[in-house]
Design a protein around this nucleic acid. Structure first.
Lengths: 152, 152
DNA sequence: TGACTCATGTCAGCATTCTGACATAGGTTG
DNA sequence: CAACCTATGTCAGAATGCTGACATGAGTCA
C-alpha cells in the first residue's frame, strides 16, 4: 500500500515500535501513580533519591531524562510539598544535594509497589532469555545512537 | 548500594532502560528534524498521512501516541502552514479526512531521509537476529501491558 | 421511532517540558 | 595570576501535551 521506497514504513520501523512500547509503559505507570498524586517524572526523581541520596538537580535531570530546568521546577514543587529537602546554601560549589524527607520516603514506598506491579505485568509474557536479550539489545541501541557509530 | 528490597533498582529495570532508549531516540530525531522545522510528532503525522491518506484527526492521534486534542492543534498548525488540507465539511459523519499537500509531501521527503539515517545508525550495532528479536520482544511487552495478563 | 451508547471534532484551561539567557563556582592552561 | 572553559542553579517565556467539557453524527436496541 503505497510504500514504494518513499517513507519509513511505520509498521516495520523499530523506532516506531520503541515509541509505542515506551508510550504504553508510560500510560500504564501514570495510571497507577495518579491515585498517589505522582507523575512518572516525579516518581523517577524520588526513586533516584532513594537509591542515591544527595544527588544534585542536574544529576537528577539526567537520571530522569529531562532538562535541568524542568527538574528544577519539579524539585521546587516537591520541596514545597515536603517530599524532599535541599540546603539553603551549597556546601561546595553551586551544587545543592537533595534528600528525601520521611514523608517523601513513605510516598515513594507506596509508589514503588504500584510501579513494580506494572513492571511485573510487562515482564510476565517474557522468558528469562528474552528479558536478558531485551536488556542487551536496548543497551546496544542506546550506545549506537549516542556514539554515532554508523558502521562507516 | 542501599537497595535492600526497597525500591525498583533502576540499573536493572527494563522499564527504565526502555525509557532511556526511547528518550535517546527522540533526542536524535529532534536533532535532525529541527533544521527542517519539524518536531517528531509533526513528522509522525506527515508520515502517517503519506502511508494512509485520508486519516482522520483521531486516527492520526492514535498513530502518533498523543490525544486527539493535541493532534487537533497540531493539524490546525500544519493546515495553516500549508502542509495538509482538510475539507471544510465532513463528507460523512464528523470525520474530516486529512491529506498531504504537495508542499507537505516535499517537506516529508527531506524529513524521511534524515529520520532514516537515525534509524540506520540505531540498527547499525545489531545483527539481523537481534533486530527480529527486538521486534518480537517489544510487541510482547506492549501486548502484556495493554491486555493486563499478569500471569494470574 | 426514540433512547441509549459510542466516537469524533473542538474549545478552554492547566500542567509539563522545552529553549534562551544570565550569573556564578571550579578546574585548566597560558 | 589571568583568561578560558565547563558545569551548575535559576529565571522567564514559549511550545507542547493533557484533562475536562460540550455538541454532534452514527450505530444499536427496545
Amino acid at each position: 500500500m503505497s510504500q514504494d521506497g518513499v517513507g519509513v514504513d511505520l509498521e516495520t520501523s523499530l523506532g516506531y515500535l520503541l515509541k509505542e512500547a515506551s508510550s504504553t509503559l508510560r500510560a500504564a505507570m501514570e495510571e497507577v501513580l495518579r491515585p498517589l498524586g505522582l507523575s512518572v517524572t516525579r516518581y523517577a526523581c524520588l526513586e533516584l533519591l532513594a537509591q542515591r541520596p544527595g544527588l544534585s538537580n542536574s544529576e537528577l535531570a539526567r537520571g530522569a531524562f529531562v532538562t535541568r530546568q524542568s527538574m528544577n521546577v519539579l524539585l521546587q514543587a516537591l520541596e514545597r510539598e515536603g517530599y524532599v529537602t535541599r540546603p539553603a546554601e551549597a556546601p561546595v560549589g553551586k551544587v545543592l544535594p537533595t534528600r528525601l524527607t520521611p514523608r517523601g520516603r513513605r510516598s515513594l514506598e507506596k509508589a514503588t509497589v504500584a510501579v513494580r506491579s506494572v513492571e511485573v505485568r510487562m515482564l510476565a509474557g517474557m522468558t528469562e532469555t528474552e528479558q536478558s536479550d531485551a536488556f542487551r539489545i536496548l543497551r546496544r541501541m542506546i550506545h549506537s545512537l549516542r556514539d554515532g557509530n554508523d558502521g562507516s
